[in-house]
Design a protein around this nucleic acid. Structure first.
Lengths: 182, 182, 182, 182
DNA sequence: GATGAATGAGTCTTCATTCAT
DNA sequence: AATGAATGAAGACTCATTCAT
């Protein structure tokens, strides 16, 4: 049921999906949905909260590994890449209706999670600069801002000719560390 | 009036903004809006069409300049960076309600414009690879996909501590061509 | 101006025609119409009142001629046939929006005029029956009811292959007096 | 519910009847109507389509009976007379809002049905003329045009002193075949 | 658990009319 | 006379949610 709702949310956006459509997909009437959920909001909450929990776990594990900054970042990219692939609904919901969710008290944790992601990246970039592994003229905050949207590119879209999560992660890391020039 | 609507659309999303809110902001009644516009949709159209026209003009001018691929890409990034800064409302509208707009016949031109942007990037990346300026192992389509979202980062957010359009463009180009490593 | 409005009313119905459409047709703005007329209603009133005045004049003249019932009825059909042809707008308005007009106090005269028409027909039919010119088993009220709608068939529609007002009047009178059988 | 709506449509016209009035009459809120119907249009469609189906069935059965033209026409008048009496709402809707309905694609079948009615009458009139049963100087198309409106006179209006469906049909046939003269 | 009828607040839109300029 | 901006009441329709059965 949550899965069904997630698919619809991903297809057409959270707000554009009506409770009736979810119920139709589940083969029940819209009123009957409310035996399973308090509200449409709580379905969204379930999907989103689970997703962010996994993502933050990825980040914390990578930081806790204690590796060099470039290793920590590489681990983040590789593990979240898989998490992303398994939570496409949540991702699309956030991309389509970010404003809506973050304007509601119930979803305050979204901004909090994103702040932790941001802090992690910035502090790893700073560590790398200090250690001489990254260019000294790098502005960590601005660099993170540029990278930010790329972090959420869902790997392995279900279309023929798509790329695997690993391919996307590798390409991203190569681009990140070395750029496109020869 | 278009400006007012654009600001509201950018703040809360196109769909989440009601006609009444626009009218309120303009100090008139909601019905009076229709003296100036056919529909809510046509306000959105005006904002979006103008924006994409400017963006495509940037792209075509850069390509027409006939420079080396890296110069063409640099010009694109620098000129669209300014266009983006001047069309923040349109940008936010697209980010928030992309699904909605592209599902409506009237906004078919959105996908068309994005396709032209994609083609331009991919063909410049291909030219650069052939010319030996870009790494031979680069996958143009995948690389574009990674860059895509970054292209729309609106420069110079109006918040204290923001970066100028030039700063963002420069940082992006540096990252693009050379990566973050020393 | 009244003529213009009448044409539009006839084409699409009184209610379906907006004040703005009338103004557009006149080459002015909708607000400017109100320098010429109090209201949309008063334009309709002008068209309708003139029409019914002419029709009632036709009826009274025929009755006043003092002829035999069949002659009176023939005169009515022939003269109103021309009046009808010259007032197609009014006719169409009444056919499309009869309910609307008669539900408004201002147009009370519509029902009054129709009542006079009815009374005239019924009394001529009765006179004819008494005089032995019309069949004795004729129910005057029911007969009038059957004829009623036919009375308003606008002669000579402006389409190729249409019939002239005279042709329609003659055919109607032949049908009325003799039926279709040999 | 359809019945309720039909009564209101007949009383004040389809367009003049608001969805709220229908809901009020049903003792529910206007939004609740949409639990039962897609749209106001689909209520009208249901009423009108059923009516025209019955009418066309009457016509086809009469033609299929294979009788003489005057018998076919008599059967048409007698059977549709009953159908008319049972569909007064539909009839009034068509008389009041014919223009509106026929201007909408969904109600295209209205014109088609009327064309079939017209063809039937004209071809029976032609057959009767050939067979020598009807006057040789009859113009079938013009005659049909004169009769047309009479065909839809709903029998047995619910007012005291009304006529039964049979009475109206008989009077019409007598008038049609023999006229009013002795 | 499910039904299905109903709610009620809200959405975009229309249009005859007014009025300062 | 005309403009054009604005009014305000109304119209059809949507949708998350409730609740008796």
């Amino acid at each position: 049921m949550v899965r069904l709702a997630g698919q619809l949310f991903a297809q057409k956006g959270y707000r554009a999906t009506t409770v009736r459509e979810i119920a139709d997909a589940a083969g029940i009437l819209s009123g009957s949905l409310y035996h399973h959920f308090d509200s449409k909001e709580s379905i969204g909450d379930e999907i989103l909260a689970r997703f962010l929990d996994e993502i933050l776990a990825d980040y914390r594990a990578a930081v806790a590994s204690g590796g060099e900054p470039n290793q920590v970042l590489a681990q983040i990219v590789r593990t979240t890449s898989k998490t992303l692939a398994g939570n496409r609904a949540a991702l699309t919901m956030l991309q389509n209706d970010w404003h809506y969710f973050t304007s509601q008290p119930r979803f305050r944790y979204l901004r909090a999670a994103l702040r932790e992601v941001e802090r992690t990246w910035i502090s790893q970039l700073e560590r790398g600069i200090e250690a001489g592994a990254f260019r000294a003229d790098l502005d960590p905050a601005l660099t993170y801002r540029l990278l930010r949207d790329v972090l959420w590119i869902p790997a392995a879209r279900n279309r023929p000719g798509g790329y695997s999560a690993e391919q996307v992660a590798d390409a991203f890391l190569e681009l990140l560390f070395n750029g496109i020039s020869t």
